[in-house]
Amino acid sequence: MENKMQELIKDFREHGGNIISLLQETQEAFGYVPEEAVFHFSRELGIPASNFYGVLTFYAQFCLKPRGKNIITACRGTACHVKGSERIITNLKRELKLTDEENTTDDKQFTLEQVACVGSCSIAPVVIVNNKILGKMTTDKASKEINALRKEASRG
């Protein structure tokens, strides 16, 4: 981790110092933005940690906690909404035993994220499972996806 952070800092200095890009690359490298990394950058670059957190909490893309092995992204765009995304999301939450506050399962297998629109409105409602776009979703189809991933996980 130490080495990666040094590399990111080097890039940051060479490319004109853009905080958003630095944090995007950090998330790319670690899957989320660890607190340790933020304070490390802050010390090394002499930029207050609050500046980093200002950006981190402003943009929806950033994640401050480790995410699960499988990322389930439910779209709640307008087209998805009128085609029943709310029910799918409620169902997924119940199935994965997640709350409004906690979106990663205890076993760190699943993270349920919601996104404003992925631009696949003509096949709404849409759920993305590990970067694979699945259209015309139903609660049933979503459950099947989760079960398949669970089986995979138990097989190791």
Partner: peptide, 12 residues
């Protein structure tokens, strides 16, 4: 930065 939910013209 096509942010309107329910729109995908720019993407296309």
């Amino acid at each position: 930065d096509e942010g309107d939910p329910g729109a995908f013209m720019d993407r296309a």
